[in-house]
Amino acid sequence: MATETGGPGSTLKGRIMCHAMWARDGRALAGFYATALGTAVSETYPDENGDEVAFAFYVNGAMYLCYTSESFTAPRWPEEELPFHMDFSFPDVAEAEKRLLEMGATKPAHQPGGGHWTVLLDPSGQPFCIHGTH
């Protein structure tokens, strides 16, 4: 049974402060998602050699961080299950899809949403879904 006083059995009340993703080009991926979400990359982080390898932007107080990884390979979706993916909502899904494709997303042939959502691949090849705002 959860208690409100802390200690064993207490209810945790954390919040997500950062969503981290990897890509061959973290700067480009951060720019893509920041633009899609109406913001801009606002912070960069260096590695031990001083090279910028992580790029951050914020939405509703949560940080989104995109890392550059030389060894990154995109998931082979839908053949492989995804450990996670993100869903976004837009007031005008058709317009959002058009703009996201112009920004470098691609639309795979496999569309399992039955018209309820659209799967796109971000510029690094990772799937994400777009929905209409309810």
Rank of each mutant, 00 (worst) to 15 (best):
F90C: 04
P108W: 10
E80S: 07
T68W: 00
A28T: 07
G14W: 08
A96Q: 01
K107M: 05
A34P: 01
D122N: 10
D25K: 07
P112D: 11
G115D: 04
T44G: 14
G114A: 07
G132V: 11
K13V: 07
E81Y: 15
K98I: 02
E52V: 02
P78G: 09
P46V: 08
A109D: 15
G9Q: 05
R27A: 12
E102S: 14
E102D: 12
E48Q: 15
G31E: 11
L101Q: 05
G9S: 09
Y64S: 02
Q126K: 03
R24K: 12
Y64D: 00
F90Q: 03
D87F: 04
N49R: 13
D25S: 07
A96H: 02
Y67W: 12
V53C: 03
L37S: 03
R15A: 13
E95M: 10
A23W: 00
S89E: 11
E81W: 08
T3D: 13
A28Q: 14
G125W: 01
A105D: 04
L100C: 01
M17N: 12
D47K: 12
T5S: 15
A62G: 02
V119Y: 02
K13E: 11
F57Y: 09
Q126T: 10
F88S: 11
M103Q: 10
I130L: 09
L101Y: 06
P46N: 09
G114H: 06
H131W: 09
G61T: 02
H85M: 12
